[in-house]
Write a protein that binds this DNA or RNA. Structure first.
Length: 570
RNA sequence: CGGGGCGUAGCGCAGCCUGGUUAGCGCGCCUGCCUUGGGAGCAGGAGGUCGGAGGUUCGAAUCCUCUCGCCCCGACCA
């Protein structure tokens, strides 16, 4: 491709709308342009990067035995009503009516459609296992789209769905997909981790997220420094707390005035204790009903764990007014002793003795509260966020908290959808059984953004070779010089013959601009034909990632690059 | 949905508070000269319904009302 013919509008200045580095660079490098909030057009280079990721995804999915299909983006409400998600899915589901006033929606995901297809076409175990995937534009009407391709409303996704005859088969399929995902992200040249995850609104029993490691990631991962344990914050647990020490004598409960001290920090400072000796009482509304949650003063409630414990569809923290309405106590002085709403406790609280709690009275706290003596709770469970001080639940080693970008998510769905949509097959004994399903997503456009978050410097993008829009950018520094131009053109042809994807910068621009643009768009190898060719017959090869440079005679350049690129992609 | 901010040339911004020639600046773009290994220089030029509608006024980018769009923060720890 010739730069002079390419739509590649690079920007010197960063558009004001961009916050994170991948968004800034995608705009500056002329890869994408915004059309409206959370919706982008892909320009040639942006699309080229997307296609690279897609190609790797296709190869690995096909290798893993999956088949590609293409499902509709516009879906009838009927199917969603049948699965129950027309009610459950919230405002993220963009709904509209067609000209016949039929309710429809834009597909944010395709469990309903695929299950409908399979229930119509597959009726026997002989047709199983079946693993279908597609690469398609999805639409989710996010509350707040942001960060460019990282959290758009419209985005390109690979979604796959598997159908198996038994749990054991489904488990194998899950493992196959897990492995395929490892291959995909490895081949994309990304540093990533697979972590245990909560299943969220998709539902199901078991899931892993594939996270690209980057400080700017929106998610926090918990990784063991020693063993293989890795989980996201919603799922991560700490090593079980030690059993309560019976030797600590229970002291008498005592009320103490704590005027104006509401926050943990203020209360503990006032009483001269640490947050580890206090239990805070948080009120949540679980599907609208108040429930109090007890956690140690230095811990935080993990709402997803609470939601799962209660079996609620939605939990949210109550605001001050809701707390007062439910308990008659102003926030800051709440405690479990004498509280009338249901109370659950984090398991850490269960081993504490003689701790401080709110007195359920303005400006008062209680000292020496004890679970079992002064109050009871309905459930004790792991309900808190893991912290960097916690230990690995598997091996007891130190945990590390790090940031990541979710680029893939795989789920064991079980029979959630096949039951809801009555999708059944006959097994080898003539028994009618629901399909055991799994679903497997990859954010293709987000993977491109994540790759940039992970691989960039002050000058621009540094693409991993496998997903770079071009492998080589060839700079003709003097398009008006016959000898140099002839050399560059010849090299362009030679590189193409080597099977190398090359962008020839044949623009009548000054060298500085060409260097700057080459750095910005992040092409892995830069080849320069200029002054040193005119003087010594040498052409420079520079690796974008390392800046390492070699000068070679013109005739050797194509072979050298071909060898390097083949070696890197092998 | 709550709070804040912004819409002026393709991009980044000034002007608005305190209304008044022809609405500016930098970058980019076009023409010419010049220059050619890290976003040069000189000269000339094109490009604006000042987001939209209504209002106040002799007069509105500027003041008022409504509206549309975009961005940021929050919606999770008392």
């Amino acid at each position: 491709m010739r730069y002079s013919q390419l739509l590649l509008p690079t920007l010197k200045e960063t558009p004001a709308e961009a916050e994170v580095v991948s968004h800034k660079l995608l705009l500056r490098a002329g890869f994408i342009r915004k059309i409206t909030s959370g919706v982008y057009s892909y320009l040639p280079l942006g699309l080229a990067a997307v296609r690279k990721v897609e190609r790797i995804v296709r190869e690995e999915m096909n290798n893993a035995g999956a088949q590609e299909v293409l499902l509709p983006m516009v879906q009838p409400a009927d199917l969603w009503i049948e699965s129950g998600r027309w009610e459950k899915y919230g405002p993220e589901l963009l709904r509209f009516k067609d000209r016949h006033q039929r309710e429809s929606c834009l597909g944010p995901t395709h469990e309903e459609v695929i299950t409908d297809l399979v229930r119509r076409e597959v009726h026997s175990y002989r047709g199983l296992p079946l693993n279908l995937y597609q690469i398609q534009t999805k639409f989710r009407d996010e509350i707040r789209p942001r960060f460019g391709l990282m959290r758009g409303r419209e985005f390109i996704m690979k979604d796959g769905y598997s159908f198996d005859a038994s749990e054991a088969e489904a488990g194998k399929t899950y493992e196959t997909m897990h492995y395929a995902y490892h291959r995909i992200f490895s081949r994309c040249g990304l540093k990533f981790r697979a972590v245990e995850a909560d299943t969220g609104t998709i539902g199901g029993s078991f899931s892993h997220e594939f996270m690209v490691l980057a400080d700017t990631g929106e998610d926090t991962l918990v990784i063991c420094r020693k063993c293989t344990y890795a989980a996201n914050m919603e799922k991560a647990t700490a090593m079980e707390p030690a059993a309560p020490s019976e030797e600590v004598a229970l002291l008498p409960l005592a009320k103490k005035e704590t005027p104006g001290k509401r926050k943990v920090e203020a209360v503990t400072e006032f009483l001269g204790i640490t947050p580890r000796e206090l239990v805070k009482t948080m009120v949540y509304l679980a599907d609208g009903k108040p429930v109090a949650v007890l956690v140690r003063g230095d811990h935080e409630v993990q709402p997803v764990k609470l939601k799962n414990l209660l079996g609620a569809i939605d939990v949210e923290l109550a605001d001050d007014k809701q707390v007062f309405d439910a308990t008659g106590v102003p926030t800051g002085y709440l405690g479990p002793v004498g509280l009338t709403i249901p109370v659950v406790a984090d398991r850490e609280v269960a081993r504490m003795r003689n701790f401080v709690v709110g007195a359920n009275e303005k400006n008062f706290h209680c000292l020496n509260a004890n679970l079992g003596r002064d109050f009871e709770v309905e459930r004790v469970a792991d309900l808190r966020m893991v912290t960097a001080e916690d230990r690995c639940p598997l091996c007891g080693a130190e945990l590390e908290l790090t940031r990541g970008i979710e680029v893939g998510h795989i789920f064991k769905l079980g029979t959630n959808y096949s039951e809801a949509l009555n999708a059944r097959f006959l097994d080898n004994e003539g028994q009618e059984r629901p399909f055991i399903m799994g679903c497997y997503g990859i954010g293709v456009s987000r993977t491109v953004a994540a790759a940039i978050e992970q691989n960039h410097d002050k000058d621009g993008i540094i693409f991993p070779l496998p997903i770079a829009p071009f492998q080589v950018v060839l700079l003709n520094l003097s398009p008006n010089d016959e000898a140099i131009t002839a050399a560059a053109e010849g090299l362009y042809t030679a590189l193409a013959k080597e099977g190398i994807e090359v962008l020839l910068d044949d623009r009548d621009e000054r060298p500085g601009s060409k260097f700057k643009d080459a750095d910005l768009i992040g092409i892995p190898y830069r080849v320069t034909v200029g002054k040193s060719f005119a003087q010594e017959g040498l052409v420079e090869i520079r690796k974008r990632a390392t800046g390492e440079t070699v000068s070679l005679p013109l005739a050797q350049v194509a072979a050298e690059l071909g060898a390097r690129i083949r070696a890197e992609l092998a």
